[in-house]
Amino acid sequence: MTPNVAILGASVTLVTMTGAFVCSMGMVQVKVQSKSPGGEHIRVIAPAMVLPVGAMLVPKEKVREVSRQLQPWLPTIRAATEELLRCPDGPLVQVDNRHEHVKIAKVGNALVIDVDDQTETVHVSVPLRAAAYACSRLAGGAQAEHEATPGQPI
């Protein structure tokens, strides 16, 4: 085996492993479809791992505020996540009126939010573990780091 083939093999392995790790928490999907003529259609599919990374981009002051508010609710978020993962799929909340339809459902390992109003339809799908992990990260601290690591049960 030539050195070039070995480097190529190692690179492919590294990329594959990195990809598998990044995708291990599932994918976040956001779709926004405007109903106005010529309106925008936004579609984002990203590894859920980016949620905590996104949180890093938020101004520190805001993060501190959110962190303080989230901290007491972390055990609740963790308990709810664990239990929801065990529950069968189904709608959790549905709000309908003449102008708007909102549905929050558990589908597989994700929480799916659908909003359909007069101006647009929005579809958001967030893996439950990733959402809980992002909350833990936002709440910050070494404790959160220790208690909820990616790919590990929360």
Binding site: A80, C87, P91, L92, V93, Q94, V95, D96, N97
Partner: peptide, 10 residues
């Protein structure tokens, strides 16, 4: 029209 379904175990 609001409908909420919560597992008792949750």
């Amino acid at each position: 029209r609001v409908r909420i379904n919560i597992p008792l175990s949750l």
